[in-house]
């Protein structure tokens, strides 16, 4: 397993009222994302535990692209990864942030 953590500044607070959400499951080629609104509105953190070692550059790129697009201010996203492809990761990150906006 490899553990990676990325911290970013976000332009705006992520929308929605829910304090947390979970999307995905840990399986081969899949991942789960637990998103929690626990940080100051300008901050964002993505913490990853992954079975695929040596892909730090790819994760860094996917995460900064995600922060740029979604501006997830205030959120900590924790990932358990079973070796998902970057497009699956990007999809789950977006789903996680969107879930905070869904009705309670």
């Amino acid at each position: 397993m490899e553990n990676l953590t990325y911290r970013h500044k976000a332009k705006t607070r992520a929308p929605g009222d829910k304090p947390l959400a979970l999307v995905g499951v840990v399986a081969s080629g899949n991942l789960e994302v637990l998103v929690e609104r626990v940080l100051p509105d300008t901050d964002c953190e993505v913490a990853i535990a992954t079975t695929a070692k040596g892909f730090g550059d790819v994760w860094a790129a996917v995460v900064s692209d995600f922060v740029e697009r979604r501006s997830p201010g205030g959120l900590r996203l924790s990932i358990n990864d079973g070796g998902a492809r970057p497009d699956t990761v990007a999809l789950r990150l977006s789903q996680a942030v969107r879930s905070l906006e869904e009705g309670r």
Partner: peptide, 27 residues
Amino acid sequence: GSFTEFVGPEQRETSPHLQVFDLPEQF
């Protein structure tokens, strides 16, 4: 809307044994 979870994933009560096998945990 009626469901309330106990010891949910945000508590991160994961398996204490999977890391011995270098396997991913689920929250």
